[in-house]
Each structure stands twice: as C-alpha cells, then as structure tokens.
Nucleic acid binder design. Sequence first.
DNA 1: CTAGGTGCAAATAATTTGCAGAGGC
DNA 2: GCCTCTGCAAATTATTTGCACCTAG
Lengths: 312, 312
Amino acid sequence: MALDLSSIRPPGGKRSTKRDRILNVFLRQEGHVSADELVALVHRDAPGVGRATVYRTLQWMVGAGLARKVDFGEGRFRFEPSYRHPRHFHLVCNVCHRSSEFLSSDVESLMEEIAAARQFTPTQSVVQIFGTCEECRTGRKTPSLDGSTTALVFARDALRMAIATERSGLDFYTRAAKLTSDARGRAVFQKLAAEEKEHLSTLQKRYTQLAAQDPNLESRPTFLFFKGAASGLFAAGAEQLRKGVDDQQALLIGIRCERGSHQFFKRYGERFEDSEGKQIFLEFADEERTHLDLLIREYRELRERQSRGRSR
Amino acid sequence: MALDLSSIRPPGGKRSTKRDRILNVFLRQEGHVSADELVALVHRDAPGVGRATVYRTLQWMVGAGLARKVDFGEGRFRFEPSYRHPRHFHLVCNVCHRSSEFLSSDVESLMEEIAAARQFTPTQSVVQIFGTCEECRTGRKTPSLDGSTTALVFARDALRMAIATERSGLDFYTRAAKLTSDARGRAVFQKLAAEEKEHLSTLQKRYTQLAAQDPNLESRPTFLFFKGAASGLFAAGAEQLRKGVDDQQALLIGIRCERGSHQFFKRYGERFEDSEGKQIFLEFADEERTHLDLLIREYRELRERQSRGRSR
DNA sequence: CTAGGTGCAAATAATTTGCAGAGGC
DNA sequence: GCCTCTGCAAATTATTTGCACCTAG
C-alpha cells in the first residue's frame, strides 16, 4: 500500500513540498479524478493549498508521465495515475459517462509498431471506445470492474492465460516426447513436460486462492486481452506436431513457443500488484528462460550430430 | 466532390435548414476544426448564424456519428467529419500540437473484439498516441500527410498491399500448379495464377498513375497499417507449399487465403475516395469471391472422388 | 540570494442556457 | 397550431494568469 515516492519521481522533476502532498493524494486515488475533485481531496488533508497549485501540479504530472489526462465527454478532464498500468484503455459509455478499463497487449504492440514506423516517440497512449454499455442498454446490472477489483481481475486474467499456456505446453511436450525418435531429445521433452505440469498445478492452486477472495471473480468481465496467450501459446505448436514434423522441427517449434512464454511471464509479472502472483510469474519467466536455453542447446547438438553423420 | 447530404443524414436526424448549412460547411472541411473556427467559416457563408447554434449542431453531429470530437491537448476540442474514415487514429505531438493520422485494420478489429467481449456497443473510437513527432525532435522537415494528401496516400497504401497480395497469390498458385498431381486441380491453379497476374498488372498500372499525381508520393509516411496484407496475404500459404502438402491441403490453403483476399478488397474498396481505385478494388473483390467459389467447388469434388476411390 | 513554487483573486476562454421569436410540418 | 430550432446575450464552468510572497538550496 505504501507508495515509494522517490522511485516514482520522474527525471527533470522539480523539488517541492506541496507538490508531494498533492501527488501523494493523487496517487492514493483509485479511479479517475477531476481537477476539482482533487482540490477537494487535497483540502481535506491540507486546507491551505490553492486551486491553481493543484492545476499546475496536474500539468506537471501529465508532462512527467505520472498522470494521464482523459476525456469522458463530461466537459471536464479527468486524471488517473499512470504508474500501475503505463498504458490502459477505456470503454466509455455515452449514456452514463462511466468508463470501464481494459488492457490489451496486442493493441499496445501494434501502437508501438505504428509509432516506430512514423519515427514518432510515444509517451502516452489513449484508446477510448465510445458507445453504450450493457447496463445502459439492457437496464440489467452487470458485475463491474472498479478500482478495487482491477488488481484482482488482472491477476485472474493473467493466471487464466498462464494456465492455458502451461496446459498447451504440457500437451506440446508430451506429444513431442512421444514423437521424438532420438533418446536424448525425448528425455529433454519429458523433463520439460514434467516441469510444465508442476507449473500448471502451482498456477491452479493460486487461481483457487484468488477466487476465494471475491465470490464474483469468475463472472467479472475480461480485463486483459492478449490473443496469443488467451488460448495457450503452445497451442499452435501442438497443432503443428499433430501434422507430423521431424525432431529438429519439433525443437524449433518448442524454441519459438518457449521464447513467447518467457516474454509473457516477464511482461505480466512486472505488472502484477499482488506480490505473490508477481513472484510466481517472475520465477516462471526465469524457468522458461532456462527451458529455452535447454532447447537451444539440444537443437545445436542435434544439428551437429546430423552434419557429422552426413559428412561421414 | 459533391456531397450527398441526404445519404449522410443519420437515422433519428431532426429536420432543419441552418443545420444543413452548418453541416455542409463542416463536411467540406478537410482537417480538424474547432467550434469557433467553424463559427467563423459558417459566418462567411451565412453571417446570421449564432454561435450557440453551431455548438448545438456540433453536439448533434457527434451524437449522430457524423463528427468525431478529438482533443489535441490545446484546451479546446476539435471536430472532424467521420464519414470518410469511420475510424481513424492520431499521432499527436505534444510540442507542436499537430496531429498526423493513420488507419489500422488490425487495431480496428481488435477493438471490435474487445467491445464485443464486454457486451459494449461501440459508436466511435478514439486512438491517440501522444509523444514527439520527428520534426520537433530533429528539426528536419518531413514529408507531411495533410488533408489534401490523405486520400492519395490511402490509395497508395491500399494499392501497395493489393500488389503484395496479388504477387504472393501469383507465387502461390504457380507453385501449387506445379505441385498438384491431379490434372483438373492443376488447371484450376493455372487459371487462377493467370488471373492474379492480370490483376497484378492492372494494379501496377494504377499505381504508376497515382505516383504521377504527386512527386513526393513514394516518400510520404505510411497511412494504412494492416499486418496481414502488408507482406501479401498468400505469403504464408506459399511458405506452407514449400514445405510440401498434398493436393487437398493446397486447396484448403488457397481457400483460406482467397477468403482473406476477398475481404481485403471489399473492406478497402469501400473506403476509397477516388472512384477509379474504388472500382478496381470492388471488381477484384468480386473476382476473388469467384475464385473462392471455384476453389471450394474443386475441393468438394476432390474429396468426393477420393472417398469414392477409397470405398471402391 | 535567487530561481522557482504558491496563494489568492481576477481574468480568460470555451461552452451552455434562458427566453422571446421564427420556421417547418 | 404546435413543437422544435434559432439568435442573442447573459451565465456557467473549467482552467490560466498576475502579482506579491514564500521557500529550498
């Protein structure tokens, strides 16, 4: 809960005391605050702070990348801390003016590519989909996704994807072990299959723990969108195995998948807020990295043996 | 150039005369107009129009989906007609406050998927990447992309992708014809290869025509991003052929690619502004559809023959 | 001591609203 | 004739600025 301000303070940041006060109040905030709301909040702590200072600080925070300025069509801007999810996106309802958030790894990477193609140096991205939310359309209440639950739902989605990934990995390695003619290669695949199984059970245990924290967790809307991982990173690879490949190709496919998997765990591990989930993810990222090295070594070895065999 | 207002008038639109005048002026505008700029523009034509009416009309236009409200961080909103490109996105420079636009089919479809997953009915999407543009970063002037050139650059990019698609298609079908053992299937692939070649030359001719219209056309930044088509929709299929497949698989791959290709031509044909390019695209969309049917028929035929052969 | 941050109140700027009258159907 | 649109000016609202004062380094 305690925020480490000094680590957050951005480069080029100017010194101040009031500023820190305002920043502090702002960062404690979960949702989207308007300038005036922030003034009121700050006044509760320290009544002597002028509105102008809050505005000025807000400007500075946006410039420094600490805050994001968003428009929900209400005629005034709202601000949100940007340290948690450096980029996240909004579905904004035109009727009730509420917004619900989501994260999309795919959109993020597309935007990075596009900016790079235009030699543009991006600092912040705003993605807003305006329209009508289900509640305003149907009148029925739907499980919401407010500030207090996003961390939980993020963890849920990341775990779901991780489970799908490990499950597909288990499938892939089991299948690969069966297919591989070479004894050494088979052993490697069997070892990896065993580890993925281990990972899988750790993740599932963690998932049940999470589910216990919020009875509605299962039914809350998806927060994290990532096409590659949603159905398991190894799924496509397992599919290829089914079509028949040789030992070498199987290793190559494994390498490609394992690389994706390492990146997946690293990328999302860093964004976890609950330290336990974060630790699992970062640990797995390391292990997947080890798997990757193992596969690469095995691949080199195999190629060498083959070329020796051929030249003989 | 002439705008058909009646077709643009959205459902639920209320009647008016001044409104039409304002709408007219607004739609003639190329770039992003602020409310006050629009007031001034309207006053040139019809001095008796009140500022409030312009504001009210603008609100109505946004609600009706005729206009998009965008914030470039200047402290006031700008509006742009949305009939040309129902969804398009901005790179906004924090320094010069100018914006450059882009289109991304991939981002669009991701956003549609996400909205659907959340049971959200989208009306408008705003994607803004804030940062520093190359010109402000390096001081050098770069070929720009303003209102007058977007139509041209859109056509250029669509043509480039179409050319890549047809080229990869030609490659695919030529290769497939060589590989296919069955005489009938071979004939089909040869026919399709010939047609793709034909398409290719039409597209290339059109491309040179375009290039003649703007000497800097080649060097202008990319406007249209579409990962699938950028390197040719058939490229992955051709790759698979190289790895070796049977007749039936080749047909299936062709079907998948041709389906994508049909959708590509249809999707972008509709967005063309120059009627010649539009016509080419829509015509090709039809022909690709015919190809698709041909391939599907051939595939059914082949399966039938095979199952008959097996049962005998 | 000096550059910059700060509070207060006044200024600015964009957008909205009240109300009497005009216009379409 | 009724309902909605429209013009004008006044009102409202968010945000910025001027200026005298304070504070950190």
